[in-house]
Design a protein around this nucleic acid. Sequence first.
DNA 1: TTCAGGATGTACT
DNA 2: GTACATCCTGAAC
Length: 204
Amino acid sequence: MARLEREFFLQDTVTAAQELLGRYLVRTDGGETMVCRITETEAYIGAIDKACHAYGGRRTRRTETLYAAPGTAYVYLIYGMYSCLNFVTGPEDVASAVLIRGCVPVHGADAAAQRRFGVKAAEMSAYQRKNFMNGPGKLCRGLSIDRGLNALPLGSDALYLAHDLPELGLARRPDRLAFHTGKRIGIDYAGEAVDFPWRFWLDE
DNA sequence: TTCAGGATGTACT
DNA sequence: GTACATCCTGAAC
């Protein structure tokens, strides 16, 4: 099993967002381990990006995590009831991160379905199956990710990213992987940054 | 299938 | 007080 290490998160944020597609998000909670393949990401770069919480060097209690070490988890509450999961990129004191917007379960789907809908995976409706974890709030609900995990350091067992998980038959993604590029979602307030093509996703 | 509206709480002005 | 990196429901088509 090869985890993503510090060097991965020191890449340019947009590159890191693209490189996270097809990698594995591993979450252990209540003795159950759930693994998802990442299918959608967005880049947020504090220095130049009005959509980033830390735009213009804003440094508050909430945004402090964005300035933490590369690979740190940044989890915040949005619209009063949903959590969003990011991973910090770049060196300490540089505010940038990749938002995980979507993923598909590849292991522990029963545990995730229970957290998301209160049923077993096989009991999900077609509608639920389609909307399992295809959104930042949805995947956090399914994986029991909330602000309790904010500022979780790289290397934690409760939540980490992996290139592969051979023991589960999960192979490393190809070096070159076709993906789509487009504008980010839900940031209409962000001036010219609305048009930055920093959203990336896989078919599926 | 699409769409409008409401839920809900924290951060920041 | 206002805005928010969202999601779900119910109604209309």
